[in-house]
Simulated assay, not measured.
Amino acid sequence: MAHYRAKSTLEQWRIFQAVIDCGGYAHAADKLNKSQSSLNHAVAKLQQVLGVQLLEVKGRKAVLTAVGEVMLRRSRQLTQTAQELEQLAHNLEQGWEPEVKLALEMVFDRSTLIPALRKFQDFSRGSRLSIEDTVLTGTLEHIREKSADVVITHHLPKGYIGEPIDDYVMDLVCHPDHPLAQLEQPIAQDELSQHLQIVIRDTAEHPQEDEGWLKAEQRWTVSHFDEALRLVRSGLGFCWLPPYIAEREMKKGAIRKLQLEGSSCRKGSLYMVLPKGEQTGPCARQLADLIMGKEIEAQKAAAS
């Protein structure tokens, strides 16, 4: 296969884009701090080596030809890729990680993360993000074994510190026709042991069965809240579910919230932990800052 040599340069494509974006050669020259003649020459050379006309002059304005429109669109992909490649080299030279792992306790409403993740995407070019749902001791394992870079947990293991990030709530719910919903509210705790409970599987290698809401005589285990909601909605058992999962169905009347003696809901705090401590990489630190709302530091780092 013959070795291919590019006829055009990235600089020529950037100049071509600037002429269009700035509405002409004069403004593009100001923006790029180059002479107008050098821009004219670059675009003329680009058209010559490609053998196609990209621009035509109408009145005093240079406008795109039909071919130019196609080439402009594709050239933006090219210059963006080049920029990302250079950013990746800079990131890796600075010690940026090729991948960041984020472990999220399943009770955490991750929709609140979207603005932070959107900003993270803007400056983390080349660094992949892996997001894992974790439950109970599975979350703690990631902290103790340092197998994730950033962890949001409902519980801090001994010897670790975390920043409070949010609170969580778990409501006790069942189908409106379920026997528990027919009882006078609030119901006694020992009533629950007479019925099937839907629980979420602990994601740990060696789960601690005495943790949290796993105490139940009869139980079915599922791997995610969505599956638990499906079973509850169909009338099979009761479950502790966070409002971000259950609220819409409660408003529709598809499931009902139960009142329990001495406890209308389960509550707790969520913390963000960097399990690797001082060994946490700069990319993971920037993600943590964004999650905590420290946007200024992240933007400065992205610009540097």
Results as ranks from 00 to 15, higher is better:
Ala284Gln: 02
Ser35Gly: 15
Val107Phe: 05
Lys34Ser: 08
Pro157Glu: 08
Lys101Ala: 04
Gln47Pro: 09
Glu56Gln: 02
Leu104Ile: 12
Ala62Ile: 02
Leu78Arg: 15
Gly95Gln: 03
Leu64Ala: 10
Thr153Asp: 00
Gln87Arg: 04
Gln279Ile: 06
Asp109Tyr: 13
Leu55Asp: 07
Thr139Cys: 01
Arg125Gln: 14
Glu295Met: 10
Leu156Asn: 04
Leu72Gln: 08
Lys251Leu: 15
Asp210Met: 12
Gly138Cys: 08
Ser38Gly: 02
Gly253Trp: 13
Asp210Trp: 06
Arg76Pro: 02
Glu297Lys: 14
Ile198Asp: 10
Met71Asp: 07
Leu113Lys: 06
Val199Arg: 05
Leu236Glu: 04
Arg74Tyr: 12
Ala28Pro: 00
Ser37Leu: 10
Val67Ile: 15
Cys265Val: 12
Val52Ala: 12
Gln77Thr: 14
Lys267Val: 08
Ile198Leu: 12
Glu105Leu: 02
Gln87Gly: 04
Ser304Met: 14
Leu214Arg: 14
Met292Ile: 09
Arg233Tyr: 10
Asp167Ile: 04
Ile131Thr: 06
Ser263Thr: 01
Leu172Cys: 02
Gln279Val: 06
Arg74Asp: 14
Asp171Gln: 11
Gln83Tyr: 12
Arg60Met: 07
Ser127Val: 11
Gln36Asp: 14
Gln286Val: 15
Asp167Pro: 05
Pro275Cys: 05
Leu196Glu: 10
Leu92Trp: 05
Leu196Gln: 11
Phe123Gln: 09
Ser35Cys: 07
Leu85Lys: 07
Gly277Trp: 05
Glu297Asp: 08
Ile165Lys: 09
Gly293Val: 05
Glu11Arg: 15
Lys146Asp: 04
Gln77His: 15
Ile255Cys: 01
Tyr168Thr: 03
Arg14Pro: 08
Thr65Ser: 09
Gly138Phe: 04
Lys300Asp: 05
Arg230Gly: 06
Gln218Ala: 07
Asn91Trp: 11
Glu261Leu: 13
Phe108Met: 04
Leu196Pro: 05
Leu46Phe: 06
Glu184Phe: 09
Met292Arg: 15
Leu274Tyr: 03
Gly268Tyr: 01
Lys252Asn: 09
Tyr25His: 00
His41Arg: 13
Val199Phe: 02
Val150Thr: 01
Asn40Tyr: 14
Arg248Phe: 09
Ile15Gln: 11
Val52Arg: 12
Asp202Ala: 01
Arg219His: 07
Glu99Tyr: 01
